[in-house]
Simulated assay, not measured.
Amino acid sequence: MKVRIKYSKTGPLKFISHLDVMRYFQKAIRRAELDIKYSTGMSPHQIISFAAPMPLMMESVGEYCDAEFESVTTSDDIIERFNNVGSPFIKMIDIVELPDDAINSMAAVTASDYLVTLTDKGIAFYKNHFQLDDSEILEKVSQAIEDLKGEDSINVLKKTKKSEVVTDIKPLIYDMNFRDNGIYMLLATGSHENIKPENVLTALCDKFGTEYDRFMYNVLRLETYFGDKKTGFKPLSEAGNRF
């Protein structure tokens, strides 16, 4: 049985790597005595794969992984058993059964949305640097968003492990606005087209005449999606059904 798991990663666990998250799931699944399927061969391993893993320093309430189980009980029972044996900062939120022809989450993901807010360090910096109070900071951020959206192109330096290239990221920003005292952004995510919130924040900092500092912003991933702009984006969990 193929399943898709939605989970959150919050609090201090934003400082652990994706490899650590993978190890956590393997151990938590064993502790919860879930009947996951193992590969065959000399070195059997749990059949589980993750979609669009987050970089360090980011929290999320919309992470996903796919797995295969030999047998299952119910969605509610599996969620409860997993959460009872693990950390309060990694929680299984949902689990659905996938059809046999479902595209795996890593290949299916096309977009993610985020809410970015200022840390205490960020608030202090903008207050001191621009001599602004709290409400004026929020107004300045809101205006910078509108200014950036009005640009014909948004060129930033994208860095990978192998190269650095200047890229126009505007076509990859599907939505961006000021919301809940923060910056909401819906961005292209996946193997074909992909940008990170830090790319957008770098462009916004250019508007402010400052440099991007990752410790000045809290980044929360809200959801991970499949689909496209024409047909609409849907959460990855909607590819399956609860059981």
Rank of each mutant, 00 (worst) to 15 (best):
R4M: 02
Y7F: 15
S191N: 10
Y212V: 03
M1I: 13
I90V: 14
P88I: 08
L56V: 10
K162H: 13
I47A: 00
S8M: 04
A102T: 10
G11C: 02
L19M: 11
P44Q: 11
D100W: 00
I48W: 03
M58E: 11
I103K: 14
E97S: 10
K170I: 02
Q26C: 01
D66V: 04
E33K: 15
R4H: 06
D175K: 14
D66N: 07
E223K: 10
L204V: 13
T189V: 03
I183P: 02
K170A: 07
S153K: 15
M54W: 00
R179M: 07
D206E: 15
T210W: 02
H129D: 11
A111Y: 07
K127A: 02
D147V: 07
T117P: 01
S87T: 13
M1R: 11
A52N: 15
G240K: 10
E136G: 04
Q46F: 00
R31C: 03
T210Y: 06
A107E: 15
M106V: 00
F89W: 12
K2P: 04
G11L: 00
D76F: 01
F69C: 12
G209W: 07
Q46P: 08
H129C: 03
S49F: 03
K196L: 10
I183G: 02
R221Q: 12
S17A: 07
G86Y: 07
R179Y: 12
N218C: 03
P55E: 14
K127G: 04
G209E: 09
E97A: 11
A144S: 15
V61H: 07
N83E: 09
A239E: 11
V85M: 03
D152Q: 11
K161T: 10
E136N: 13
V61T: 15
M57H: 14
G232Q: 10
G190W: 07
S75W: 00
I123Y: 11
T202K: 12
M176D: 05
I79P: 05
K127T: 11
E80W: 01
A52E: 13
T10C: 01
M106D: 09
E146V: 05
I169F: 06
